[in-house]
Computed example of a mutant assay.
Amino acid sequence: MRNVEIKAKVKNIVILLQKAKEISQSSDILKQHDTFYNTTKGRLKLRRFTDSGNGELIFYDRPDTEGPKLSVFKKANVEDIDNLNQVLTEALGSKNEVKKVRHLFLAGQTRIHIDEVENLGNYMELEVCLKPEQTCEEGEKVAYEIMKQLGVQKEDLVSGAYADLLLK
């Protein structure tokens, strides 16, 4: 699975939420708790959906650059999340945890995340889910168009994962 992603610092969450609502077909609010593990390449995280008790194991690899970038990822649904966390922590070691409230909006092939990240602040992510025949460049065009609709400026863009930003 592939997508084109951007991450940006949010200046005014109320305005951004309203703009996202205007361009989306659906929305949801999710409480998430991510544990990141030590890896030799990419990132591996166990995501707990704190409202349901379920989760998913996600591996992804993408460059740590600002602006649109290609991300390749794999996901697996997880039910025995606490035991899996213990196994992964013992085998790999955990490096960080990220707790957030995610406002999820769906706009065409794009997932808009507006996140309230504990101990970090407000951020937004765009994930343009690429179709098999789409190029990265086509996904970048979609990302830039949605950035424009949301009023996200290039100077707002950040690189890295929330786990990395929390370590700084």
Score class of each variant (00 low, 15 high):
165 L>R: 05
162 Y>M: 04
78 V>L: 14
46 L>S: 15
112 I>N: 02
156 D>L: 03
112 I>R: 02
158 V>A: 14
142 V>F: 02
99 K>M: 06
68 P>Y: 03
156 D>V: 04
139 G>H: 11
10 V>A: 05
43 R>E: 10
20 A>W: 13
151 G>D: 09
69 K>M: 08
58 I>V: 05
65 T>Q: 11
121 G>E: 09
50 T>L: 06
123 Y>G: 01
136 C>P: 03
142 V>C: 00
151 G>L: 09
24 S>C: 14
3 N>K: 08
155 E>H: 14
8 A>T: 09
161 A>K: 10
141 K>D: 06
98 V>H: 14
79 E>Q: 13
20 A>C: 12
166 L>P: 01
52 S>A: 10
69 K>G: 05
59 F>D: 04
39 T>M: 05
119 N>W: 07
29 I>Q: 15
96 N>K: 12
37 Y>P: 10
8 A>E: 09
47 R>A: 01
57 L>E: 03
163 A>N: 02
111 R>S: 00
36 F>L: 11
8 A>G: 11
128 V>N: 00
60 Y>V: 00
115 D>K: 13
16 L>R: 08
160 G>T: 04
121 G>P: 05
59 F>Q: 04
160 G>N: 06
127 E>V: 08
114 I>V: 15
126 L>H: 11
92 L>A: 03
58 I>Q: 02
152 V>D: 00
82 D>E: 11
100 K>C: 01
89 T>F: 01
35 T>Q: 15
52 S>I: 08
49 F>T: 03
115 D>I: 12
13 I>H: 09
20 A>L: 12
114 I>Y: 15
53 G>Y: 14
100 K>G: 04
39 T>L: 05
40 T>A: 15
81 I>Q: 07
15 I>P: 04
57 L>D: 04
46 L>T: 15
69 K>R: 15
45 K>T: 03
118 E>Q: 15
163 A>Q: 01
101 V>Q: 12
92 L>D: 00
124 M>F: 14
144 Y>K: 14
50 T>C: 02
75 K>M: 10
80 D>E: 10
119 N>K: 13
147 M>T: 13
110 T>V: 08
57 L>M: 05
94 S>I: 06
6 I>E: 01
64 D>H: 08
33 H>V: 04
108 G>L: 11
41 K>H: 13
